[in-house]
């Protein structure tokens, strides 16, 4: 593929369905040559934001621009933007080749691109099979093939690794790195936070329609750590931590503490008589930890931990 460049700019993007605000005053940029991870819970507004960017949903306010223009104003949209939204969008009775040929024809792209992208996503041997018989992973590969047909400078990918097996995820990871390395701008949403942490240069975190973080991933994790503590009287320790307005989560008999060092925690345990201390360690915060803190959800999966954050 030749080197392609592109960029995304959203300003005060807002979408209201009825009386419900789904995306609220969201602004961000996705510069050329970067992968920007887009993270949020189901219903947080990721997909709606991406669909506004792609001209599928009309913003209630604000602008979403690709290479300085609205999607519907692009002269050759498929050559400028590739997108994965809600699977391949293929008729189940069509073959993979037919599906891509229809897209290529509608976009005025040469049909040789169909074979090229089928080869790229390793679906060549299944090209004549009906899409209705595809596995979820094959459908995702087909969706990626559709996004890459026009060799675009901007890629908007909603959950591109959804349904892929571990080798498939690794393949997508390498592909996205390669595409960004060619100067393309990638906006990638995923529920697999650890996967985004592997590839993203920047991270957008959206919660209840509002952007709560827009920062390089490195900066997001700098200075963040969690202290794990097991002691004889965790209740007393928890009360002491609350009193100091520190964020603490109980996980089994372990307290997870943010905002204090291991030394400060150990000294506090001794001071309040919560000892003896059985376990005390400080570990770097993961992307998941930071995400759940910013998005206001428990550090661990729901049901496994009780969020005891001080209000």
């Amino acid at each position: 593929m030749r080197s392609r460049q592109g960029e995304i700019a959203c300003r005060s993007l807002t979408k209201v369905f009825g009386h419900r605000s789904v995306v609220d005053d969201v602004s961000f940029d996705v510069p050329a040559g970067t992968i920007t991870g887009f993270v949020g819970a189901n219903g947080a507004g990721k997909t709606t934001t991406m669909r506004m960017l792609l001209g599928l949903v009309t913003p209630s306010a604000g602008t979403a621009l690709v290479n300085g223009r609205r999607y519907r104003d692009l002269e050759h949209p498929r050559r400028e933007v590739g997108a994965v939204v809600d699977g391949p969008g293929a008729h189940p009775g069509h073959s993979a080749r037919t599906h891509l040929s229809v897209i290529a024809t509608a976009a005025g792209l040469p049909l040789r691109r169909v074979d090229e992208v089928l080869d790229l996503v390793e679906l060549t041997e299944h090209a004549q099979r009906r899409v209705g018989g595809f596995s979820l992973g094959m459908r995702q590969r087909l969706a990626l093939a559709g996004a890459l047909l026009g060799d675009p400078g901007v890629l908007v990918l909603d959950e591109p690794v959804n349904g892929l097996d571990p080798p498939g995820i690794l393949w997508v990871r390498n592909l996205l790195r390669q595409l960004a390395g060619e100067g393309r701008a990638l906006l990638v949403s995923s529920h697999l936070l650890s996967e985004l942490a592997e590839i993203a240069h920047r991270v957008l975190i959206i919660d209840h329609g509002r952007l709560v973080a827009d920062t390089p991933l490195d900066e997001l994790l700098v200075g963040q750590s969690v202290v794990e503590l097991r002691c004889a009287d965790p209740a007393a320790m928890e009360r002491a931590l609350r009193a100091r307005r520190l964020r603490v989560v109980t996980e089994g008999d372990t307290l997870l503490i943010e905002g204090a060092s291991a030394r400060e925690t150990g000294e506090l345990a001794a001071a309040v008589g919560a000892g003896p201390v059985h376990w005390l360690t400080e570990r770097p915060n993961s992307f998941e930890d930071v995400y759940f803190r910013l998005a206001g959800s428990p550090i661990r999966q729901p049901g496994t931990a009780a969020d005891a954050e001080v209000a």
């Binding site: 001209g55 599928l56 949209p77 997108a83 809600d86 699977g87 969008g89 293929a90 559709g146």
Partner: peptide, 18 residues
């Protein structure tokens, strides 16, 4: 109407926004 059944509408309008 079938364009809206399997998500083809998105693909159609990505190629032809008008």
């Amino acid at each position: 109407a079938g364009e809206w059944r399997f998500g083809q509408a998105s693909q159609v309008f990505l190629s032809t926004p008008r």
